[in-house]
Design a protein around this nucleic acid. Structure first.
Lengths: 343, 343
DNA sequence: GCGCTTTCAGTAAGCGCTTTCAGGGTGCTA
DNA sequence: TAGCACCCTGAAAGCGCTTACTGAAAGCGC
């Protein structure tokens, strides 16, 4: 038997000796005589028929696959948030397709465009945006028609530009709380491992940390702020740089846990002990940091719930047409990687 | 201006005062008088036109989004492999959509069906299959028509059932090599933290390990084999169980790194030191294990390359119609989590 | 200057599906 | 037995796009 390229509904209808309309109805569970329905179902089964989603979507039926766009699925932070999205999606019988942009604005727009073209019912954008006017405009241009066309959009952790429903981790407050906690441990000289300045998340966390220190009369020496990519290796590199500079900091605050992990590796290689020689703190509370030795002190964000909430926002009708903002607080969790000064 | 639900090609054509065909051609870069082309492009821009991918696909154009299906993007193993897939896809100007099944066979089939329906040019399945005849048949039924229709499929790490191009980590040999390495350290009494027996990967790794021990005259006590989910918590639970049983093993082999991480956590909580009190080894070499303290001894699989190769297989025409198998070896890497017996 | 080829825009035929609209059986009532 | 209401099925009209195919205008050689 020479298999046809694509089995179509017409083939099924012919095999079952019914009309197209009846075949379609039978397959979609609408009212059809049991006898005919069985014939259609049997034919479909035998021919391994799969409806062409394009034709179906084109003909008006909506499909159930939402799109999620993040920077990098390889990063535990995004993986955790995506996990939350998927949980809620699963509960609602939605399939989730996840895309990684690798922080390439062009790719991000390409994905939005693709999802828009596919008429996905919802698009979620996860992760800090860029402070880049050109990109903002391009994304806006892509998103607006999608929204006008009835598409639903929700974002996690990017506020500046987009006027869409958002879930916002309280980066500024969280970093401030961390500053206070570290001050309470007696630290007075800090270093910060920062991510790219263009990210709004960086601005918020760094700002919150610095401001809270300032309130206590502690200044952050610009030489003690090292910038690197938001990755494990970025943290490793930034910490190495800091060590090379001979910083006198007693405590290092990495703007993300992933960077903190890299920093700890660098310290270990330099023969320094955490937290005896130097304290290390991170931000996010990705799952793995609990299993490190020492476990990482961090600002715990409810990562999974961030994703869940975003999905819920996207699923939920917003009649009041006002943009909804959901702020989600972070909580400082002191673990083994930080110690009292002099202890 | 009241925005229309969807701007269609017809709107653009009308705005530019040309025919549908001309508008289509202009947008697709086919030969059209520059003057007309500009008019069309300007109109499209002004109306924020995005072609409806469904209509386009239905009308015959193929699109450039490949689908990747894995068990759980939250798991660093899959994240790493997916990272490799994306690298190659990016080089080929393909977009990648990633889906997680959470080990639910039904969901897996739903995704394949969806991707098939969307006429994705390629589908990659990442991760161990199930030894479940019913599922095998269902998946086969879904995949065969896709392949017949010109779709390309490649899988990573599942061999039993599917007759498609495959990248196969050498689980059996790797586990055997690990057995030898651990024997060389002087261990004679082992415990294994296993995953669900239904996974082919489990059968291979466990079998390889056991067989190699047998060659050295060392038997694996069934009471020293504990089964749990392939997750961090699964490893934690399995290790706790083992401890409760009062096993006399001097070395624990976890069938995946993720489980090993959970196991270490359990040991730590029980006040046992790795590797002084007990050695721990894993399998996979996910990126994080290098940063643990102690770093984890494991069988290093080239995770990223697994993904790269799979994508390459899918991209590459296979005229010889024979199924291609790519075996990729693992290498034992001894790190701090294992020690010589009695040292 | 005439008939040819060449270019390029327009017309129209689908791609595979859903869904409205009509029509033809039934079963019921009078 | 005739009349009415229902329920199902089938015919057909799109959904928005691509792409033959058609036809008109323009360019060429003689």
């Amino acid at each position: 038997m020479q298999p046809r390229a694509h089995v179509t509904l017409e083939d099924v209808a012919r095999a079952a000796d019914v009309s197209l309309a009846t075949a379609s109805r039978a397959l979609n569970g609408m009212r059809v005589t049991p006898q005919l329905r069985d014939r259609v179902l049997a034919a479909a089964e035998k021919l391994a028929y799969t409806p062409n989603a394009h034709a179906r979507a084109l003909a008006g039926a909506s499909h159930r696959t939402v799109g999620v766009i993040c920077h990098d699925v390889t990063d535990p932070y995004f993986a955790a948030v995506a996990g939350g999205v998927m949980r809620v999606a699963g509960d609602n019988d939605l399939l989730v397709m996840l895309a990684s942009t690798f922080r390439d604005p062009e790719r991000e727009i390409a994905y939005v465009s693709m999802l828009r073209a596919e008429r996905a019912p919802a698009i979620l954008l996860i992760g800090s945006g860029f402070e880049d006017a050109r990109w903002e405009r391009a994304l806006e241009a892509e998103l607006k028609p999608y929204l006008d066309g009835g598409g639903r959009v929700a974002v996690v952790s990017r506020h500046r530009s987009l006027k869409v429903d958002s879930v916002l981790p309280e980066n500024r407050a969280g970093a401030g709380a961390m500053a206070r906690a570290l001050l309470d441990l007696g630290h007075r000289r800090f270093a910060v491992l920062s991510g790219p300045r263009a990210l709004t998340t960086v601005a918020d966390r760094l700002g919150g940390f610095r401001d809270e220190l300032a309130k206590a009369g502690v200044a952050l020496d610009p030489a003690d702020i090292v910038e690197g990519p938001f990755t494990r290796d970025g943290g490793y590199g930034a910490m190495s740089e800091l060590l090379a500079r001979g910083s006198a900091a007693t405590c290092v605050f990495a703007l993300t846990d992933v960077m903190a992990i890299g920093a700890c590796a660098a310290l270990r290689e330099h023969g320094l002990s955490v937290p005896n020689d130097i304290s290390v703190a991170g931000f996010d509370d990705i799952p793995i940091v609990r299993d490190l030795t020492p476990a990482l002190t961090t600002v715990a964000l409810p990562l999974q719930r961030l994703g869940e909430k975003a999905m819920e926002l996207a699923l939920t009708e917003n009649n009041g047409r006002r943009r909804r903002l959901l702020r989600m607080g972070g909580e400082v969790v002191l673990r083994g990687s930080t110690a009292k000064v002099g202890s």
